[in-house]
């Protein structure tokens, strides 16, 4: 039974929260509200005066080709990222969980990309695709590698995606590996005695225990896919043309380089709407499917 708290104790508890509340209010809630306000103005980010233009910016979002392009890019990018990473993480996780030699060494190597800064990963691969990949093409006479992949609007999508997968597969993989440790070994042994094949064993016994990890990985990768910024900034800056202009890159450019602050604010709030819808969908879909607990 909880004791009744004295007024002095209540005051202490309230004081405990104050530093965080001030910080959060001032540097998070205030900017959020300011952003909603700016999104209804035509402010360029610098001038002293600007006009309140209601929902004009939001209406213009739908007719702006670069906005539509950036949404198409980010959604397509996120879709592939989610598919590839979740399949790869499962495969690598299962392999690392098998009875293998040098298990810890392999695990350390597969996790390694996660400790390198995203922008540095982008810059390193930018140089590699610029200088090293064409030489591999020369060496083995592979025509499509000899061309400059970074200059080709369609190829560059796959290059950036490859680099993201290289960097972002690590965490989902170790999470799958952690999930696999939750499968009780008695169940596996019993299924072997019952004569279940490897696939049957995976589907009926292992997979249900992985569902919570899967849902987590899904949330992680969808968000990092839709909000991709660092790797693109390091590799292409959004180019060639607007070929790799993600929503994040476009907000940055519109807000800080092209001086359309109000418009960029409306764009960023529409990104919030997209993320919110996806989060709610994920939570409802995954809640109904969750079987095990970690």
């Amino acid at each position: 039974m909880a004791r009744r708290k004295t007024p002095a104790e209540r005051l202490t508890y309230t004081t405990f929260t104050l530093p965080a509340v001030v910080l959060y209010g001032l540097f998070f809630m205030v900017p959020l509200l300011l952003g909603i306000y700016y999104s209804m103005t035509d402010w360029n980010g610098i001038s002293q005066s600007y006009d309140f233009i209601d929902l004009e910016n939001y209406r213009n979002l739908f007719s702006d080709n670069r906005v539509l392009n950036s949404f198409a890019f980010s959604l397509r990018y996120a879709l592939y990222l989610v598919l590839i990473i979740n399949v790869l993480a499962l495969i690598i996780g299962l392999m690392l969980n098998a009875n293998i030699r040098a298990k810890n060494l392999f695990r350390a190597i597969y996790f390694f990309p996660a400790i390198i800064s995203l922008v540095v990963v982008g810059l390193v691969f930018d140089q590699i695709f610029y200088h090293a990949v064409p030489r591999i093409g020369d060496l083995f006479s592979i025509a499509f590698l000899q061309r400059n992949l970074m200059g080709n609007p369609e190829a560059v999508f796959w290059v950036v995606l490859f680099v993201s997968v290289w960097r972002e597969c690590a965490v989902p993989t170790v999470l799958i590996l952690a999930g696999l440790q939750t499968v009780p070994s008695e169940l596996i042994e019993a299924s072997i005695l019952d004569g279940a094949g490897s696939f049957m064993q995976f589907r009926k016994i292992v997979f249900p225990f992985l569902i919570p990890v899967f849902s987590m990985n899904l949330v992680l990768t969808v968000k990092s896919g839709i909000m991709v910024f660092d790797i693109i900034k390091g590799m292409t800056g959004g180019g060639p043309g607007t070929a790799t202009e993600s929503i994040g890159i476009l907000i940055y450019k519109k807000g800080f380089e092209e001086m359309r602050f109000g418009f960029a604010s409306a764009l960023s709030l529409s990104l919030f709407l997209l993320i919110a819808v996806i989060s709610i969908l994920q939570i409802t879909v995954l809640r109904t499917k969750e079987a095990g607990q970690l």
Binding site: F27, K223, A264, F272, I275
Partner: peptide, 16 residues
């Protein structure tokens, strides 16, 4: 706040 990505508050935060 966890559901609000940084890019949503980025512009007004930097102005502030």
């Amino acid at each position: 706040g966890i559901f609000v990505p940084f890019q949503v508050v980025m512009l007004p935060t930097i102005k502030l």
